Each structure stands twice: as structure tokens, then as C-alpha cells.
Amino acid sequence: MATERLDKKSRDHYLRQETFIAKALGINEDEALTDERMELSQLIYELDGNIKANEVNLFESDPRILTPANMSSYVEDMIAKSTEISTIATTMAPIWALDYIKIFMFDLERLIDLGDNRFRQNYVFFTRALNAALERNDMVALADLFGGECPSLLRSILNLRA
């Protein structure tokens, strides 16, 4: 019953919105096609709700179990991902970069236990700079971080193991 009332309420809202637009544009009621536009608006509203309910990640986390034997290849893959994020941040849709950063940071956190205190300290500085760039929505700063700072951070953990 609550959903029926919500549907009626949203349909009334769409009807008021469409009639206002039709009057503002001077469109005849027969030409307005308000019923069809209301149905399309309702369909878009439902699709938007379904899309938001089902989270979809564009990128996946690295499924490998991190061991000393595969750490070198894992870190090299992380460096490659970091460069991809830098490229995506400056050349593609920023939302893709943000999705990739979320997955990347999850993978990067797996390395914290393997690093020394200097690596942990540099990781904290990196995350602070990352958060500042994300707050400003500064894609150039994100590209700089993932193009320069992050690969050097990752190479420092490889130098520990060498």
C-alpha cells in the first residue's frame, strides 16, 4: 500500500512537472504527450533506483594470495595499475579513476604488513595527499600521485626485499 501511494505521489509530481513545462513552452495539451512522458519518467526513476541498488565495480581486486614468492610480480602489477590510474584520471571519465582508486587502495593495504616503518610512514603521507586530492576533486593531482609518488612508494618495498 505504501508503494502504491508512493507511485501515485511520484506520478502526481511528474504530471505537475510536465504540465508546467508544457505551459511554459506554450505546447498544446494534445501535443504534450504527458502520459507517455510520465511513464518514461517513472521507468527512468525505477531504473535509476535499480542501478543504485546493485553496485557494480569496473575493476577487480587482485585475487592472488600475497606471499614472499609472488610479491615482486604483485608489486610490479601494482605499479602498472598505478600508471593506468594516472592515465585514466587525465584522459577518461573521472568516475572510472575513482572506482579504480578504491580497488587499488584495497590491494595496496595488503602490503602494509610487509613494509618497514619508513614504508608505513610514506604510505600514510600518500593517503593524506590522496584524500586531499579527492576532497578537491583534483584529477591532475591524482594523476601526479599515481604517476609518480605511488610507483616510488611501491618500488621502495621492492628495495626492502632485494
Rank of each mutant, 00 (worst) to 15 (best):
M1F: 09
M1R: 08
A2P: 15
R5Y: 06
R5D: 02
K8C: 05
R11D: 08
R11F: 02
R11A: 05
L15D: 00
E18H: 03
E18F: 07
T19E: 13
F20Y: 09
F20Q: 13
I21C: 06
A22R: 01
K23T: 14
A24I: 10
A24V: 11
L25Y: 13
L25K: 14
G26D: 04
I27D: 03
N28C: 06
N28I: 03
E29C: 02
T34A: 08
R37Q: 12
M38Q: 07
E39M: 13
L40M: 14
S41G: 13
Q42W: 06
L43P: 05
L43E: 12
L47V: 15
G49A: 11
N50S: 03
N50D: 04
I51G: 03
I51W: 09
I51E: 09
N54R: 15
E55T: 15
V56G: 04
V56K: 10
N57W: 12
N57I: 14
L58D: 11
L58V: 07
L58R: 01
E60F: 07
S61L: 11
S61H: 08
P63I: 09
P63H: 12
P63Y: 11
R64L: 08
L66A: 04
L66S: 06
L66V: 13
P68A: 04
A69R: 12
A69Y: 01
A69V: 12
N70D: 05
M71E: 02
M71G: 01
S72Q: 02
S73M: 04
V75H: 01
D77H: 08
D77C: 07
D77R: 10
M78F: 00
M78T: 01
I79M: 05
A80G: 13
K81S: 03
I85C: 04
S86E: 10
T87F: 02
T87V: 07
I88S: 05
A89F: 01
T90Q: 09
T90D: 09
T91A: 05
A93N: 15
A93C: 12
I95V: 13
W96H: 14
A97Y: 00
A97V: 00
L98G: 05
L98A: 07
L98I: 01
D99W: 02
Y100T: 00
Y100I: 00
I101H: 06
I101M: 08
I101C: 08
F104V: 05
M105N: 12
F106W: 05
F106S: 14
D107S: 13
E109H: 04
R110L: 13
R110M: 12
D113R: 09
D113S: 11
D113T: 15
D116C: 02
R118D: 11
R120Q: 10
Q121T: 15
N122E: 12
Y123I: 03
V124E: 09
F126I: 09
F126D: 05
R128E: 15
A129H: 08
N131P: 08
R136M: 11
R136N: 04
N137F: 14
D138P: 03
D138I: 05
D138K: 10
M139E: 04
V140F: 07
V140G: 12
L142N: 03
A143T: 03
D144F: 00
L145W: 08
F146P: 01
G147A: 06
G148D: 07
G148A: 08
G148N: 09
G148R: 06
E149A: 12
P151W: 01
S152Q: 13
R155F: 01
R155N: 11
I157W: 03
L158S: 06
L158D: 04
N159C: 04
L160G: 02
L160S: 01
A162G: 10
